[in-house]
Design a binder for these strands. Structure first.
Lengths: 230, 230
DNA sequence: CGAGCCCTACCCTGTTCATGGTATCGCGAT
DNA sequence: ATCGCGATACCATGAACAGGGTAGGGCTCG
């Protein structure tokens, strides 16, 4: 060591971004920031996986769309191998699934590329201060996930399930059970003694209420919200 | 009927803030903003409740600490009476309980007073654009709520998975995760970087091993056997 | 080195699903 | 009494899925 590391522990940063100009720009900024040390600057998931496996990382800054995989995979691996490390996403992706996936994988920061020029150093500082720098568009997805809607009629609902209790109608709950168990339209119709034309109507309504687009997603969502337990 | 609902798309804003100087300052800013109309500027929860009950509101901007109650109560009432309306918190409070309460009550914006001078107009615009202007410190609380749990890869879960651990191959477990979350062939193929022809092959093998005939059944079975936890 | 398994990939075919629209009936609320 | 909504029902179309067969490359293990 030639005195690069003094008393202050520099933040070991791993950068993962497939777009060359963007990566270089970010790398330069990070390199020029005295508080951090750029462990590596990767263009592929594979390279990042190698780095995460071999090196000690404090902070992963990653894109999501990668030529050989998805940035969330890097986040997952990082959280597994180095639970103390932080992860921040910098991406153009803003759809609900991607955002929720990233957050659930352990990302604590999420900046949208499309917005105004990113102050990456400020975001890193924010993150390391225990905050979550998140673009407002991304935040909305997360907030929606928590807050949803529908007013609690009483004062305060202790269990989260109580809030969603009225979300689905009784019939929809019947249908939900059915799709969780893998029944087809026909089986469900027979079991509930209704026309097989009616089943998809209920299913559509369930999808709308749970913001799902197919059966598995609906079951996953319903389970997550405590509407059903598998 | 006063018949003025369609003429102008000015945002009807209700301000609730007990601190006089702060309230006046915010009121002036909002008043000077051509995009919005200040319906009322309240110093107490009681006054705000009256306004929410009697007037049509598009956006509530509220403090939380109030002399006669809590701002969250105003948010709850608003969401109950006027579900289309938005709510934004401006407060010094940042504890988990308060933040989660506010978000669950329906707030889609949450700015911390202590931070840098608030650009309230930008935040309002953000909010009305469908985003969620949220201070990064607040965001961390929310993110923790969503993602702060255990990493999905069961590093320390030998008891349940032991018997069936070898039932599915690693790749099949990847696929299983995907179908539990509702991914299509194409999405799964992209995320795992394999051909979309290969995905159904794995799925078929999973069905065979779990004795399932469709996705929901497979997820149900896998969950029941402890292969995945939703 | 051949056996066995996993992962990969493609072909084909029939079924099921997702999604739109439209409509009737009953019930509780306005 | 009209309105909103839940539940029921039908039609139609394109996308996605299930299930069958075939097969090459890579890996490990006797």
């Amino acid at each position: 060591m030639t005195g690069l590391e003094r008393d202050k522990p520099a933040v070991r940063i791993l950068l993962l971004e497939d777009d060359d100009p963007v990566r270089d720009r970010l790398a330069r900024i990070i390199d020029g920031w005295p508080g951090g040390r750029l462990v590596a600057s990767c263009a592929t998931l594979g390279e990042a996986i190698r780095q995460i496996t071999d090196e000690t990382i404090d902070l992963l800054i990653t894109d999501l769309n990668l030529p050989d995989g998805h940035g969330v995979q890097a986040i997952r691996l990082l959280r597994e191998r180095q639970p103390e490390a932080q992860a921040m996403v910098i991406s153009v992706l803003a759809d609900d699934r991607t955002v929720i996936d990233a957050i659930e994988a352990g990302a604590t920061g999420y900046l949208l590329k499309d917005s105004d020029p990113i102050d990456i150093v400020a975001a890193i500082g924010d993150l390391l201060a225990g905050h979550s720098p998140i673009s407002s568009k991304i935040a909305r997805t997360i907030v929606r996930r928590l807050g949803g809607r529908e007013p609690p009629s009483g004062a305060t609902a202790p269990p989260p399930a109580a809030a969603d209790a009225q979300l689905l109608t009784p019939r929809e709950m019947d249908i939900l059970w059915g799709i969780a168990k893998g029944f087809t339209y026909g089986e469900l119709a027979e079991r509930l003694q209704i026309s097989k034309q009616t089943v998809p109507v209920h299913i559509r309504n369930i999808y709308r209420k749970l913001q799902a687009n197919n059966r598995s997603e609906a079951v996953y969502e319903a389970s997550r919200r405590g509407l059903i337990k598998l």
